[in-house]
Design a protein around this nucleic acid. Structure first.
Lengths: 215, 215
DNA sequence: TATATAATTAACTAACTAGTTAATTAAAAG
DNA sequence: CTTTTAATTAACTAGTTAGTTAATTATATA
């Protein structure tokens, strides 16, 4: 039995709020996003936001939960098809890069949260961040046990990876603008594809982990 | 002739506003900082802020200008004492790390701004960012010409450096919290000194630029 | 000492903020 | 067809926001 088109659809309304919230939170930040504006953006009455999400913080929590789960799912899925630590690491970095690029709200929101050390959502961000870093860290540890990776500082390498990829995505408009004025010669990578950047980051990290690695 | 203690000192008032603004903007962000709160924080009447800085954006601009100039000065000073591209690069990274650690508002503000692609201050952030990146980029280019560095993607390497160092500083409280609960084994580098991290980042970048480099 | 100027203040405004409420609709269940 | 329940709305509140204004101090100068 096919669902008929309903005038009232709780799930659709809820989804619409989350989607608009992702857009606004990632561009204007938590404090910079107003619930009036959000209601206008998604075409629903403001009271609906509080009806479904209790308060602003609750909505923000739902938004962060959603996108962090999404990226985690995307990465674990791709990784599962391989057992080699090298390939898994490569897959991790490339999947993160591609996902970040096609969902640019992720880097914006993540950097904003991390630059606050989780001022809005300490507990929850903490758990999700930990989960993703745990994945990365496990790959390095396994590679080390198997003798294919050198001993390393996983936290620093992780930040080198997500730091660079996130910044590449969020600064894209800024870097393109920089490329237009040619007062000084400066390559801001304004035409680079995310695949090339992911590849470069991957080979750099592998170079660090495998001293005799050649790309 | 020594200046007597004055009840009215424009420079001191202005300075006091900027210092409090740095503190608040870096912890609460632009939108999250209120001018009433700032006035209370620095013990001056709110009207003084508008008297000296015209409006909120003007104050923010002054704050960003100040700290970006400070880090630029710190780095150029240290770098000037060497001519070798390798040593200059090492000095760049280490000075940035130490400065970021002892002025933790820098990473917080920079990451916030960069994650917006300069939503508040496109023009100015743009120029200051360019200047600092130009310094980094010049070192790589000179090293390349002199045959001591491989060809590289300076923008990506730059983001790997400042991305990791900034994140290490801003997430410190979060990582220390993570270290306390030991449900899963996970090294978050909570006890690491910034010197060790800067060293590690430096040797990683040098490894990328000089394939036969041994630390 | 008188005057001009710069620094400071309290009190104000108009717009905006997150969140509430009570009434109203639409759909599902009996 | 009626009743219950869930979804939606307009209108509201109480507090906060950036920014203004006119009056008032203090200081340097003539």
């Amino acid at each position: 039995m096919t669902k008929k088109i309903q005038k009232r659809d709780a799930e659709a309304s809820k989804r619409s709020i989350v989607l608009s919230a992702i857009k606004l939170f990632s561009t204007r930040g938590y404090a910079g996003t107003s619930m009036d504006e959000l209601a206008k953006e998604c075409g629903l009455n403001k009271a609906m936001i509080f009806y479904y999400f209790k308060n602003k913080k609750g909505l923000y929590e739902a938004v962060m939960e959603e996108i962090l789960q999404e990226i985690y799912k995307a990465i674990t899925q791709k990784i599962s098809s391989s057992t080699s630590a090298e390939v898994q690491l490569e897959t991790f970095i490339k999947t993160y890069g591609t996902f970040a690029c096609s969902h640019p709200y992720l880097p914006a929101l993540l950097l904003k949260e991390l630059s606050d050390s989780g001022a809005v959502l300490p507990q929850q961000l903490f758990k999700s961040m930990r989960k993703l870093f745990g994945l990365f860290s496990d790959i390095l540890r396994r590679g080390e046990k198997e003798g294919v990776f050198k001993k390393s500082m996983p936290m620093v390498l992780y930040f080198m990876v997500i730091g660079s990829l996130n910044l590449i995505v969020t600064t894209k408009p800024l870097r393109q603008k920089a490329a237009k004025l040619d007062d000084i010669e400066l390559d801001t990578c304004s035409e680079c594809e995310i695949e090339d950047i992911s590849n470069y980051v991957t080979s750099n990290i592998l170079l660090v982990l495998k001293p005799f690695y050649k790309e």
